[in-house]
């Protein structure tokens, strides 16, 4: 089932179900949305994706090896506002079916080996607490151990307030871990989805070799309301959007979802020295044969991959 976010679901006559695009408000069939990777075919609005939908869109079929799946959040401060933090965690776990706001694993992206990590904004605003930090560390370690590219898709409100200073320290923790990736000269590609803000933007997300943004994604360290309150000025049109960030030199490219998988795979190949170099590297590595069997550069197969809807095998893994 698609995560329709705030979209309204309209039951039409005779078993017809349509959804309204939250952006252009026109009605779209869910099947059509699914086929277009949850991008409105009428206005191009990129709807939010759950972590598993994102993984299904990016990872090749059949080889997802989750990293850090045993991690569970705790409540180190005994934080309590209107609701206890523990309740908030439980509610988020129940509504998303996830343990935390980040899912990472080892996979292939169009036959290119990668460690892929994805934030899920539905889980407490994709906020980074101790578990998310640790899950990122383990994913980085896995990328280093397997000598593969790190790909991270972020959508996050920033550090998780309910874990206080420990959340802030996750920024330091993830940055420190990325040093290992750099020392190993492994590529790091980050994809900024809507929205990526605060401590996540100011740590892992912007330290990538290549930063891709999804069209329309809101990217800002400070929240829009905080900026308006501090400067007492109305925010200019398009402020903080991916397209503006591109024009100010803060991201490398804005890539529509339909192109994303191909672009990531192409970058993985190029950042590892190109197809020639890569074949030599992989060919000489006898310890890790499982991606060697993958055939390279079959564009027809890639196109077919992209057209396929979300995969049911992934959702099973979720429960």
């Amino acid at each position: 089932m698609l995560d329709s976010g705030e979209a309204r679901v309209v039951d039409g006559p005779a078993d017809v179900c349509v959804e309204a695009c939250p952006h252009c408000e026109r009605l779209v069939l869910p099947e059509v949305l699914k086929a277009s990777l949850n991008v409105c075919p009428l206005c191009g609005y990129h709807r939010p994706l759950s972590a598993l939908e994102r993984i299904a869109q990016l990872a090749d079929l059949g080889g997802w090896d989750e990293v850090g799946s045993d991690l569970q959040p705790l409540d180190p401060l005994g934080f309590r506002d209107l609701r206890p933090y523990r309740d908030r965690i439980r509610a988020a776990q129940a509504s998303t079916g996830l343990r935390e706001a980040f899912v990472g694993g080892r996979c292939n992206i169009l036959q290119q080996p990668a460690a892929l990590g994805v934030f899920d904004f539905r889980f407490l605003g994709g906020s980074m607490g101790s578990v998310v930090g640790e899950a990122i560390i383990r994913l980085v370690n896995r990328a280093v151990a397997d000598r593969v590219t790190l790909v991270m898709v972020t959508s996050s409100g920033g550090a998780r307030m309910q874990e206080g200073i420990l959340s802030l320290m996750q920024m330091a923790k993830t940055v420190v871990a990325l040093e290992d990736l750099r020392a190993s000269r492994l590529p790091f590609i980050s994809v900024l989805a809507d929205p990526t803000t605060g401590g996540v933007l100011a740590s892992v997300a912007t330290l990538a070799d290549v930063i891709i943004a999804e069209p329309g994604a809101f990217l800002s360290f400070a929240g829009p309301r905080v900026i308006e309150q501090t400067t007492r000025e109305k925010l200019p049109e398009g402020f903080g959007r991916a397209e503006e960030s591109l024009s100010y030199g803060q991201v490398d490219m804005v890539v529509p979802r339909s192109e994303l998988k191909r672009r990531i795979a192409a970058l993985i190949v190029l950042l590892q020295g190109g197809e020639e170099t890569r074949i030599r590297k992989v060919g000489s590595d006898e310890k890790r044969p499982w991606w060697r069997s993958g055939t390279l550069g079959r564009t027809a197969a890639r196109a077919e991959e992209l057209a396929r809807p979300a995969r049911s095998w992934l959702r099973r893994g979720d429960s």
Binding site: V175, L201, A202, T206, F221, V226, T230, F239, Q250
Partner: peptide, 24 residues
């Protein structure tokens, strides 16, 4: 960090991240 339009456009988040990286 200063929450302002120009600061954001000038790469506030990236500047903080790279400072952390340098100190690391």
């Amino acid at each position: 960090a200063f929450p302002g339009v120009e600061a954001e456009r000038g790469g506030q988040a990236g500047a903080i991240a790279r400072t952390l990286q340098v100190f690391a």
